[in-house]
Amino acid sequence: MHLAYPAVLSALLFCTGLYGVLARRNAILVLMSVELMLNAVNLNLVAFDVWLSRAAEETLHSGQALTLFTIAIAAAEIGIGLAIVLAVHRNRGTSDIDKLRDTAEGPEPEGPDAEGPGTPAAEKAEASA
């Protein structure tokens, strides 16, 4: 098999994930795009490992070993990431990463949580409390 096929597919998948990370607004969709990027890297590692394991006399199969480690770390990452997203959702009532601007340095000094769309929910909570 020509090595360019898996390499090009991996590059295109990585850029798809890159677009998703940059353009998505929901935090869980961003996590899905991160998974796509990790999988693109995994495909690259496997393809190059299969190529090099033929070319070399002795090989450690480091590409496949790294792929397995990446899969395990991705599983850990998705668990921690979803725990963080759920904690943010419980505290803020949203998983919209465009609204999480507490540490943003911008033209508005107060940040959008002073006049953003999160304020009516907080006011409602205050009224109900």
């Binding site: 090595l3 360019a4 390499a7 090009v8 295109l12 990585f14 850029c15 890159l18 190529w51």
Partner: peptide, 26 residues
Amino acid sequence: ALAVAVAAAVALVWVVVDAFRTTWID
């Protein structure tokens, strides 16, 4: 984001194809 992704895709595909055009996996 679309501009960044398309630019990255063009650059990566160009480099990868140019680098491995004569490489075959057995």
